[in-house]
Nucleic acid binder design. Structure first.
Length: 829
DNA sequence: CTCTCCCT
């Protein structure tokens, strides 16, 4: 212990924490920081009568760190050094160093924000940036600034960028400590382009077995790739004594042990592992690491509110951590299956969990802490807004938050359970109904991997899993289910039963599964749309795989839905009897009265609907909309479909055009263009559609009165004068004016009727000469002009020649201004 | 051909 590198920096750290409230320790692997640091502070003056809390991200590491520190003091765990984790704790009266796992720290902070007699809190492996560690630090920092100015904080990390943490801690000093590992040579092996990941890995394994001594550790993204690489290697010859050892989280414990244990003499071990071997497990005898540079990670999709697994490139920090695994006992080699150029493009660090995960639980913890806006707390990376808002919305739906975002008593009970808010709500509701035993088993089943593999897994009915579990509990029969997962589920459900102090009885059968599941997933209650498709209460569509008996259920609850765009696929679900839905979710129903336009009948109708989110549970039509509702809908339809729906007649069309003409001259006149009319239907049209219900009624609308209604009495007089419907011409005829083009009204009149008229008639306060269409006796257009005087002077004589030829019986005077106008062949004498 | 890892 004396020779550990950490010993060199401890005096420095003591000095710093004597004066400062916070420090950052960057220590490379093998420095001995986890077990060397905490005991060093026990005798510091500021620690008198106080204890040390150290956060460890994994149970195994927490327990073994406590055991090791206790052994160094010549004690057993539970004396000076203890630990505390879920369902397991060894702490005594004299314990001054407590190693805790993440959920425990959160619960401790929440139940006593002043942290009692804790003098120093250490965050170990902080570079892993788990959600709970980030939350724990945020809460601790606030507790320190508000309640406990004397509290010391020490952040310990392997590769973290020390400056950012230091800044968050108000400029805390950063101490660096070298590690004690052997050098590892890095060899970049750029991909051969077409080679599959597994083929490239297998080729590298053969090369390593040939070139290097000792065991080989291969990092692959997941179980599928591990199995493929295994097959790839088995398909060709391997050197004598080579054994292949898969290693991933879901592998049975005995096989995990076999992968971790040292190789038997005469054998060489090739461990094919996921990122579990990056931090969680140390494998003896590894001299060569082969890194495919990929890892599988869960991301939360705000679009669908569902988590999804993706395979992404590792970060530089992660790749270095993997490489370090080759140098723990002797110098080693690391083959990276990418180029050094590609390496430069890798991100420096993994994306912190808080940036990518479901934040419902975080939102609940913050609400319990008394914070509604996460920006009120200090973060290295603040929780992203969309997933946070989605988490808060879910909490409101589960009754954990009130409308204002404050935590409810129910929310407090949920947080105390520690489970995901969905599971916590289900457990509490189930306990009220006396169904806790089944709910604990469901929560455990949902948390673990599927009990079934292969063809049995194709049936998505959750009750089949429940029945299998109950059979296993009663008679230890596995019945085709995975025994390791059965045991894990049983263990977890016992933990939950103990937490809820529920009766130990084994439920008789799976009945009630759908109802309990609907408490956890109220947003995924699905209503049958036919053809295996369901509409979920949250608004998303989802479909069963082919041939599922469940697809005949009118209502289901979808516990697992994949994240594909458009219609999701239901992986796991249970039938929800309609009467249970109606009985137990009535509090979440919304009643909606909707008055709407029925296109088919062309009329306004009303209906009342009972909704659960997007689902219409009940609908009654035959309601009578009120007169005002009807007017609203009618105006809405006109607004959407256009003014063509109105009963236009020639008079109204002309009236509108005349008003448009006036508006063109004086903007204080009402604008009667389409856009303006559609925008002000409420003012000018509503009074005229009272009592109307349908399109037929609308045809009886006195439309010209509606237009006249836009003008007061004076304006109406003025309209008749300045935008007259007719103009009297010299012949005595009253000729209608055509306002189709409101900028240039047209007077179409036979030429002879205009004899004697010197100038163009003007309208619009004398500002606008009408556009004259001068016609032949047969009403053929001869000439268009807005300057009659100049027409008489010149063009008339050419036109006259032409007219005389065609209409010889008519009267074509040489001096039209002196001639008598006529609407006949010749003037009457 | 759905399945990284951890924790209350």
């Amino acid at each position: 212990m004396k020779q550990l590198p950490i010993m060199q920096v401890l005096p420095d750290l003591k000095l710093i924490l004597n004066k400062n409230k916070a420090a950052v320790l960057i220590a490379e692997p093998g420095a001995g920081k986890t077990t060397g640091t905490p005991p060093a502070f026990l005798d510091e003056p500021w620690m008198s009568g106080k204890s040390i809390l150290m956060l460890e991200p994994r149970r195994l590491a927490a327990r073994s760190a406590a055991v090791y520190m206790a052994a160094c003091l010549g004690e057993s765990v539970g004396q000076t050094v203890g630990y505390r984790m879920r369902m397991d704790s060894k702490v005594g009266k004299n314990t001054r160093i407590v190693v805790v796992t993440e959920g425990v720290l959160t619960r401790m902070l929440q139940s006593d924000p002043s942290l009692g007699d804790v003098g120093l809190i250490i965050f170990d492996e902080f570079h892993e940036r788990s959600l709970h560690a980030d939350l724990g630090l945020a809460l601790t920092l606030e507790a320190q600034s508000v309640l406990r100015e004397d509290l010391r904080i020490l952040i310990m990390s392997a590769t973290l960028d020390g400056e950012r943490v230091s800044a968050l801690l108000g400029g805390a000093p950063v101490v660096d400590c070298p590690g004690r590992t052997y050098p590892v040579e890095t060899i970049y092996v750029p991909g051969s382009g077409t080679a599959q990941l597994e083929q490239a890995a297998a080729i590298a394994v053969r090369r390593a077995l040939d070139e290097q001594p000792g065991d080989v550790l291969v990092f692959l993204p997941g179980e599928r790739e591990i199995r493929r690489t295994e097959r790839e290697l088995q398909s060709g010859a391997l050197p004598q004594g080579t054994v292949l050892r898969p290693l991933y989280g879901q592998l049975p414990q005995a096989m995990q042990d076999a992968a971790v244990a040292p190789a038997v003499p005469g054998e060489r071990k090739v461990v094919l592992a996921t990122s579990i071997a990056e931090t969680s497990l140390t494998i003896e005898g590894v001299r060569t690491v082969i890194d495919t540079g990929q890892r599988r990670t869960q991301v939360f999709s705000p679009r669908t509110g569902m988590p999804r697994l993706t395979t992404v490139p590792v970060s530089k920090a992660s790749a270095d951590q993997r490489r370090g695994r080759a140098g723990r006992t002797a110098p080693g080699v690391c083959y990276r299956l990418w180029s050094s150029e590609e390496h430069q493009r890798l991100p420096d660090d993994n994306v912190p969990e808080i940036m990518e995960t479901d934040l419902a639980q975080l939102a609940l913890e913050l609400a319990l802490w008394g914070v509604r806006d996460p920006a009120a707390l200090p973060w290295l990376d603040a929780p992203p807004a969309a997933p946070y808002a989605q988490g808060a919305a879910l909490l409101r739906q589960l009754g954990a938050l009130d409308a204002g975002g404050a935590i409810t008593p129910h929310g407090r009970s949920m947080a105390a359970l520690g489970a995901h808010p969905r599971a916590a709500h289900m457990l509490l509701r189930a306990a009220e109904l006396g169904a806790a035993p089944l709910a604990c088993r469901l929560a455990a089943l949902l948390q673990e991997r599927d009990l079934f593999k292969g063809p049995a897994a194709a049936d998505s009915d959750l009750t089949l899993r429940v029945e299998a579990l109950l059979r296993f509990e009663r008679s230890a029969e596995t019945g085709g289910a995975d025994p390791a997962i059965l045991r894990a589920v049983q263990r977890e459900s016992r933990n939950l039963l103990a937490q809820l102090q529920a009766a130990p009885e084994v439920p008789r059968d799976s009945s009630g599964t759908g109802l309990l599941l609907s408490f956890a997933y109220p947003d995924r209650v699905g209503q049958k749309r036919g053809d295996g498709a369901f509409l979920l209460a949250g608004g998303r569509g989802a479909a069963m795989r082919e041939g599922q008996p469940l697809s005949r259920s009118p209502y289901i609850v979808a516990a697992g839905v994949d994240d594909r765009a458009g219609q999701g696929r239901i992986m796991l679900a249970a039938d929800l009897p309609e009467e249970e839905l109606l009985r137990h979710h009535a509090g979440s129903f919304t009643e909606e009265r909707e008055v709407y336009w029925d296109k088919e009948s062309g009329s306004v109708k009303a209906r009342r609907r009972t909704l659960l989110g997007a689902l219409v549970l009940k609908e009654t039509s035959h309601e009578r909309p009120t007169a005002e509702e009807t007017e609203d809908v009618l105006l809405g339809v006109i607004s959407a479909e256009g003014l063509e729906l109105l009963p236009w007649d020639k008079g109204t069309v002309q009236l509108r055009q005349r008003m448009a003409f006036m508006h063109g001259l004086r903007t204080d006149w009402p604008d009667v263009a389409d856009e303006a009319l559609l925008g002000s239907l409420d003012e000018w049209l509503r009074p005229f559609i009272q009592g109307m219900r349908n399109l037929r009624d609308l045809q009886r609308l006195p439309l010209s009165r509606a237009f006249e209604g836009m003008l007061d009495w004076n304006s109406r007089q003025k309209l008749d004068k300045e935008a007259p419907t007719h103009i009297a011409v010299p012949s005595g005829s009253r000729i209608p004016l055509d306002y189709s083009n409101p900028g240039a009204p047209v007077l179409a009149v036979r030429l002879q009727e205009m004899f004697g008229q010197v100038d163009t008639p003007r309208i619009g306060m004398g500002q606008v000469p009408v556009l004259l269409h001068l016609l032949s006796p047969a009403r053929r257009p001869m000439q268009v002009t807005s300057d009659l005087a100049s027409f008489w002077r010149s063009t008339y004589f050419e036109v006259k020649k032409d007219l005389k030829g065609r209409y010889p019986k008519h009267y074509w005077p040489d001096d039209p201004l002196q001639a008598a106008p006529t609407n006949r062949t010749r003037p009457v004498k």
